[in-house]
Deep mutational scan, measured.
Amino acid sequence: MQNSHSGVNQLGGVFVNGRPLPDSTRQKIVELAHSGARPCDISRILQVSNGCVSKILGRYYETGSIRPRAIGGSKPRVATPEVVSKIAQYKRECPSIFAWEIRDRLLSEGVCTNDNIPSVSSINRVLRNLASEKQQMGADGMYDKLRMLNGQTGSWGTRPGWYPGTSVPGQPTQDGCQQQEGGGENTNSISSNGEDSDEAQMRLQLKRKLQRNRTSFTQEQIEALEKEFERTHYPDVFARERLAAKIDLPEARIQVWFSNRRAKWRREEKLRNQRRQASNTPSHIPISSSFSTSVYQPIPQPTTPVSSFTSGSMLGRTDTALTNTYSALPPMPSFTMANNLPMQPPVPSQTSSYSCMLPTSPSVNGRSYDTYTPPHMQTHMNSQPMGTSGTTSTGLISPGVSVPVQVPGSEPDMSQYWPRLQ
């Protein structure tokens, strides 16, 4: 039975679970980093996980050691009161100082060594604690504590007292930064006198190289990059290397530039699409467009005044059976039934097929058609009795279509119309 579990990581490298990497692998990681390889490249070359490479390099940059820390136990506290007071002093002298600059000053002034120097995250935590204590304490208590930490007896009751030896409130920041720059020169002199001055200088240079600022491109470089971006948004590694040799930039910087440029292009394309949609959409909808001609068919113009009344309900007709019959029939052209047409008796099958359309009241044959006459024609229609054979009435077949029909004066039988409509 094995005491430890061995495995293979996602890159194909072998590791022992819970145990640190061998010293030979750690040394190779540092050597590759000094030669300029990126952590992701080191991870692929040595088949070590990216997190492990970053952790080893980060500890090497901070402490200069590649040895693993002790497994188990607690780390001794490195942010001692003396170190905290120095950090507060540096922050007062130059409020814009960075944590890694404070760390360098602690090393250069001999406050800490490589073994007990606090990390950048520890210094940031100390600065946050100082800021929170400043908010919790009152103004007087804060000034007393700062005077105690600074070891001075001057008056701290006013704002300019934060910067000793100065009279203009805006000047101390520059003086403090100048003092810090002077301390940086002392850093070089002190570290050069040490035993491991060369190694420390190499480590600091490598650290500065990794902690780079934003790349500033010249106009020629920007023009070359934009020209390549117009050709393709995704250049391959050969195109990037050719462009890197042409404009004297690292291939990694060119790759990052193209990634950022593609993101910018997507944002601009989104804005262009929004403007295009806004320009195509009308600002207001016309009133006429809300009524579609496919839904509402136009009603033909009436030929006679009587045809303006298109349904039985508008003429005072309360018989719903006839109203439904007229509205359900398709529109037909106007025609006239003459008196000489043969009077065919209704076929029983045809009569039964339209039995649902006729009223059940037996008085329908005896009703006159003056009910369908509009009010303004009552006088004219009353002067001509319906009993004469020459009287013409208008029957409504569908809305908007008038059918003048000659009705025999002897017997106005409704059943004569249905064979004609089939």
Rank of each mutant, 00 (worst) to 15 (best):
C52M: 01
I102Q: 04
V30H: 01
R69V: 03
R69E: 06
S108Y: 13
D41R: 06
K75S: 04
Q136A: 09
S121I: 01
M137V: 10
A33K: 09
S132F: 10
L107P: 08
M142Y: 11
S132H: 12
R67C: 04
N114E: 12
H34I: 14
R69L: 12
A79Q: 02
S6Q: 14
A33I: 07
N17A: 15
I102M: 14
E82V: 12
D140C: 09
N9W: 00
M137F: 12
G36T: 02
G12D: 01
I42K: 00
L11C: 06
L21Y: 07
K55W: 04
N114F: 10
S108I: 12
P68S: 05
I45T: 12
K134R: 10
D140K: 12
E62F: 03
G7R: 15
D144C: 09
I42S: 02
C52V: 06
V14T: 13
G72M: 06
N114T: 13
V83S: 05
L21A: 04
G13F: 03
D41T: 07
V120H: 06
P118G: 06
L127I: 10
V84D: 00
F98R: 14
R38W: 01
G58S: 15
H34G: 12
I66V: 09
G141L: 12
Q136S: 13
I45Y: 13
K55N: 04
F98E: 02
P81V: 09
S49L: 00
A139S: 11
D115T: 15
S49C: 01
I56W: 07
L11N: 06
G51I: 00
S74F: 02
R67V: 09
R128I: 03
T63E: 08
V30W: 03
G110P: 08
K55Q: 02
Q89S: 10
M137Q: 13
R59I: 05
T25V: 09
S121V: 05
C52G: 06
L32M: 12
D23Q: 09
P76T: 04
C52L: 01
S108L: 13
R67T: 09
D23P: 07
S65H: 07
S6R: 14
V83C: 08
A33V: 06
C52S: 09
D115I: 14
P76W: 01
F15L: 03
T80F: 06
Q47H: 05
M148T: 15
Q2R: 14
V16F: 15
K134C: 14
N150I: 08
T63M: 02
G72T: 06
N9L: 01
S85Q: 13
S24M: 09
E101R: 12
R147T: 13
K91I: 05
A37S: 08
L127Y: 07
E31P: 01
D23Y: 08
R92H: 10
S108C: 11
N114H: 12
S119P: 02
E133F: 09
D41S: 08
E93G: 11
R128E: 08
I66P: 05
I45G: 07
V120G: 09
K28I: 06
S96P: 06
S35P: 01
L46Q: 02
A139V: 11
G110V: 09
R92A: 10
N9I: 02
I66A: 02
F15C: 03
M148I: 07
S49K: 01
V14N: 09
N150W: 07
D115L: 13
L46N: 00
S108T: 11
D104K: 10
Q27C: 14
R125K: 05
K28M: 11
M137H: 12
Y143G: 10
C40H: 01
V8E: 04
I29P: 01
G64A: 03
N124T: 06
K91G: 15
K28D: 05
G72W: 01
V48R: 01
R105K: 11
V120S: 07
E93H: 09
W100Q: 07
S65E: 13
N9R: 03
A37G: 04
Y90P: 02
G73N: 02
A70C: 08
K75E: 02
G110A: 09
A99M: 03
E93K: 08
I66W: 15
Q135Y: 10
P76C: 07
Q136G: 12
E82N: 12
K86L: 07
L11R: 06
S43H: 01
C112W: 03
R77G: 03
P20G: 02
E93R: 10
G18A: 03
W100K: 11
S119T: 00
V8N: 05
F98A: 07
Y90K: 07
A99Y: 04
P39C: 13
S132T: 12
K91S: 04
N150D: 13
D144M: 11
D144V: 09
L32S: 04
N50I: 06
S43M: 01
I66C: 07
S132Q: 11
V53R: 00
I29A: 01
I56H: 00
D144E: 12
G12T: 03
M148Q: 14
T113D: 11
N116W: 08
N9G: 03
A33N: 08
I42L: 02
R19M: 06
A99C: 05
V8Y: 06
I117T: 15
M148W: 13
I66Y: 14
R44K: 09
S54H: 10
A99I: 03
D23I: 13
I87S: 04
K145H: 14
G141R: 11
V16I: 12
Q10F: 04
T80R: 07
N129K: 15
N17W: 15
A37F: 15
C94V: 12
A70K: 15
I117C: 14
N114M: 11
Q136E: 12
S96I: 01
W100A: 07
L146K: 12
I29M: 12
N9Q: 04
M137W: 11
I117A: 14
D144A: 09
L146V: 13
I97T: 11
I71R: 14
P39R: 10
L21W: 02
A139E: 12
V84C: 10
S85K: 13
Q27K: 13
A70E: 06
E31A: 09
K145F: 09
R67Y: 08
L130P: 06
Y90W: 11
D23A: 12
